[in-house]
Amino acid sequence: MNDIEKSEIVISKIVNLLMSWGIQECTMEFDELELDPEEFGGFFFPCVDWLVSEGVIRVQDIRRYTDSNHSGFPDRPVLTSYGFQLLEQKISVGADAERLANRVKEVSSNGVGYANVGDLIGGILGGFTKSIGS
């Protein structure tokens, strides 16, 4: 598995948790993603930072501890209205189209990457491009 596929899985896990949690006060720790810390731990904060920078999620604060590269937590993470909008968009999956939210759930559940699908990251960026082009 290459680094972009690992990033997709971590992003999918983060977004899937936030979809299930809804809008509430909470914190998120890497362990809640149920991923191997040796393989995926270094992707946690960069993926959170990327989702925040792209406007998909909002956090009040990101608290990082120095004892490891995945120790700490985003405080009060929540999907933004833009994030919810992206998840409702249809993406091409072969000859079919399906909601990005369904693909996020599949990647989060099965760890199946987005090869030949346009990538989760591409779906988010494509949704951003589509929204500013409208």
Rank of each mutant, 00 (worst) to 15 (best):
G111V: 12
P46A: 02
S71M: 01
R103G: 06
F45P: 02
T66C: 01
V52A: 03
G41I: 09
A101I: 14
E8H: 05
S20G: 14
F44M: 06
Y65I: 06
D96P: 10
S92G: 11
N102Q: 15
G83K: 03
K6H: 12
Y114T: 03
Q89S: 14
S92Q: 13
R103D: 07
P37Q: 03
G118I: 00
P77R: 09
L18H: 06
D49N: 13
V107K: 04
T27K: 12
I11T: 07
D67S: 06
L100K: 06
A95F: 07
G127V: 01
L125Y: 11
S134C: 04
L125I: 10
D3K: 09
W21Q: 07
V117P: 00
I62N: 03
L18T: 05
S20C: 14
S68D: 10
L17T: 12
I11D: 09
R103W: 06
V112D: 01
V117W: 05
L125N: 05
F73W: 14
R63Q: 09
F44C: 01
P74D: 01
E34V: 12
N69H: 08
I62S: 03
W50T: 08
F84K: 13
S20M: 08
V78M: 11
F43I: 02
E39R: 14
D119M: 08
D36M: 09
T129G: 05
V10N: 09
G133N: 04
L33Y: 05
E106S: 01
I4N: 14
G127H: 00
V59I: 13
Y114D: 00
F30D: 03
S12M: 10
G113L: 00
L33H: 01
F73E: 05
D75W: 03
D67I: 02
G118N: 07
L87P: 06
V56I: 09
Y65M: 12
E98W: 11
S71N: 07
I4V: 13
